[in-house]
Amino acid sequence: MSQEYINQLKAEISVLTNETQQAAASVVANSDAMANGAYNDSLILSCVVVGFGVFVLLCITYLIQRNKKPDILLRPFGTILIVIGAVFLIVAGYSEKQIAPVIGLLGTIAGYILGKESKEKSETNSKPNPDKLSDNPGGIG
């Protein structure tokens, strides 16, 4: 091989190397811009979700002060706040491994809130009624 051919190959390699470096730099710049855009979108959505959660808390406070019966308001607003918390975690960009334990905890709290009233109803229904004991023909008294 001649020296001239080797020099020509070196020049072509150098041009390709420069083009590759420029292409890699543009890809990195585009990915940074896209990442910043996605970050901004998730930040805006997170702020909207938190703002809605604060609005719901303000509504709860107003209704509790007006009605003075927080037990009635606990179920719907507690459920709404749990959903807002879960949506915030998803929108904020946490991974599945990070969200899973928190979603389990929120589900447990929701089960407690929603199951509390049905347990109270079943306890009141299971208490014996003194009037029904006297109507029992086979019973004592």
Rank of each mutant, 00 (worst) to 15 (best):
V83Y: 03
A33T: 13
I64H: 00
Y39R: 14
S31T: 12
Y112P: 01
V87T: 11
L114R: 08
T61F: 12
K127F: 05
I13D: 11
C59L: 11
A110T: 04
V91Y: 09
S14I: 05
K127Y: 09
E12D: 11
E4Y: 05
L114E: 11
E4K: 04
C59N: 10
V28C: 00
K132P: 00
G107F: 03
I13P: 04
R66M: 06
P101S: 01
K97R: 11
Q65F: 03
L45A: 14
N7L: 14
L73Y: 03
V102E: 05
A29I: 03
Q22H: 08
G85W: 00
I99S: 02
E120A: 15
Q22D: 11
M34T: 15
G111I: 07
I109F: 08
K119V: 15
G141A: 09
V28Y: 08
I82E: 02
A35Q: 11
F77G: 06
A25G: 11
V49E: 06
L133T: 06
N7C: 07
N18T: 15
A110K: 04
N18I: 13
F52C: 07
D41V: 15
V102F: 07
P130R: 09
L89V: 09
K97T: 12
N136Y: 06
L105Y: 08
K132Q: 05
T124Q: 14
L89F: 13
V91M: 10
L81A: 09
G53S: 11
K10T: 12
N7I: 02
Y94L: 07
L57P: 02
I82K: 02
I44K: 09
N125G: 09
E4R: 11
L106R: 01
S2W: 08
G141C: 01
V50D: 00
I82T: 04
D135Y: 08
S95C: 04
S26E: 14
G107D: 01
I103V: 12
I72M: 12
L57T: 09
G107V: 03
V49Y: 00
F52N: 01
F52S: 00
L16P: 03
D71M: 12
K10A: 15
I13E: 14
V48N: 02
A38D: 06
T17W: 07
L45H: 04
E4H: 08
V54I: 13
I140Q: 03
D131M: 04
A23T: 10
L114F: 13
A25S: 09
G138P: 00
G37R: 14
A92C: 02
A29V: 08
T17I: 07
K68F: 03
D32E: 14
N7S: 13
L57Y: 03
L133K: 10
N18A: 14
Y5G: 08
D41M: 14
D32I: 13
L106E: 03
P130M: 06
G111Y: 04
L74N: 13
I84K: 03
G139M: 03
R66P: 01
N136L: 04
G104T: 06
G93M: 06
G115D: 10
A92V: 10
Y39S: 13
V83R: 01
Q65R: 13
E117I: 06
D32S: 11
L74F: 08
